[in-house]
């Protein structure tokens, strides 16, 4: 046990190696599964995923236990904050790759396919009938004709939902700092609810797109960028919602004090991050 005031260096921990085995099993299983070896791959994938989830529980439990015991001084707290901050930065860069693909396609490669600028020859020799436009599924009409989702229906509603959830989580945070427990729990629950509603609408929109608009993952580069960007965002909202639920239970159990509640703040940062990503999506994927 570290003496009071010293930087806490934990004891040996089994979780990193268990988590590594879990992640390996998941990925190795997924690779087999994708290559039509589902009999081996599928069980590996799900067992691995279960081990990863088990690891998260175990790992976070030890951290929570140590935190409640008061092992962490303010310097440890700063390390956690930096860890979360740089993790979110890495997530921003992950989305940047997909936004970059979207911008590159719209600004450069689709006009070039249509014969603009220096890409003339692809147009000339392969697809001289192709007139560039956005949205497009390319000169090969990959996936067949499709229509797009109007931004002013569900996407607008979803924007309002996520923006509202950012407000509710901030109110919950203020309540936590002021020690108003009931308000904290209500507004945190409201945030969870808004997150879940967003996901419900998003799932609904996907079904609409597949069933009525013929807008699928196969719909050329528009379908690719649309579903990959909104899909990864939806995945992050799902994770965020799970995190919010965990934090609600931790609030209910009284894990957090007015001064010391970094777990809450980290999740709030993450939630604001998925919110900002959505705003970019709304603007660049749906409206423009």
């Amino acid at each position: 046990m570290a003496q009071q005031g010293a930087y806490y260096v934990p004891h040996h921990s089994v979780w990193p190696i268990v988590g590594s085995v879990g992640l390996f099993t998941t990925m190795f299983g997924a690779a087999h599964w994708l290559n039509d070896q589902g009999a081996l791959g599928r069980p590996m994938f799900f067992i691995g995923l279960a081990v990863v989830i088990f690891t998260l529980f175990g790992w976070f439990s030890s951290v929570i236990r140590e935190s409640i015991k008061g092992n962490y001084n303010s310097q440890v707290d700063v390390s956690f904050r930096m860890g979360m901050m740089w993790f979110i930065f890495s997530e921003v860069m992950f989305f940047a790759a997909f936004f970059g693909a979207l911008f590159y396609t719209r600004v450069f490669s689709v006009p070039w396919l249509g014969g603009e600028g220096h890409g003339l020859f692809t147009h000339h020799y392969l697809w001289d009938q192709y007139a560039p436009a956005w949205p497009t599924n390319g000169p090969g009409d990959v996936g067949g004709p499709f229509s797009t989702v109007s931004p002013w229906g569900l996407p607008l509603l979803n924007t309002l939902i996520l923006l509202t959830s950012s407000v509710t989580i901030t109110i919950a945070h203020h309540a936590l700092r002021a020690g108003r427990r009931k308000q904290l729990l209500v507004f945190q629950a409201l945030t969870v609810l808004l997150g879940a509603t967003f996901l419900y609408f998003q799932a609904h929109e996907y079904m609409e797109a597949y069933e009525h608009l013929n807008l699928t993952l196969h719909s050329g580069v528009y379908g690719s960028t649309f579903f990959m960007l909104t899909g990864f965002h939806g995945l992050h909202v799902t994770l965020g919602t799970i995190m919010l639920i965990v934090i609600w239970f931790r609030c209910a159990k009284g894990h957090f004090s007015k001064e010391n509640h970094f777990g809450f703040e980290a999740v709030a940062w993450y939630w604001h991050f998925v919110d900002v990503v959505w705003l970019c999506l709304f603007l660049f994927v749906y409206i423009m």
Binding site: P139, V142, V221, S224
Partner: peptide, 9 residues
């Protein structure tokens, strides 16, 4: 998907 497939744009 068609990120790197010119036929799909």
């Amino acid at each position: 998907t068609s990120f790197f497939n010119a036929a799909g744009g």
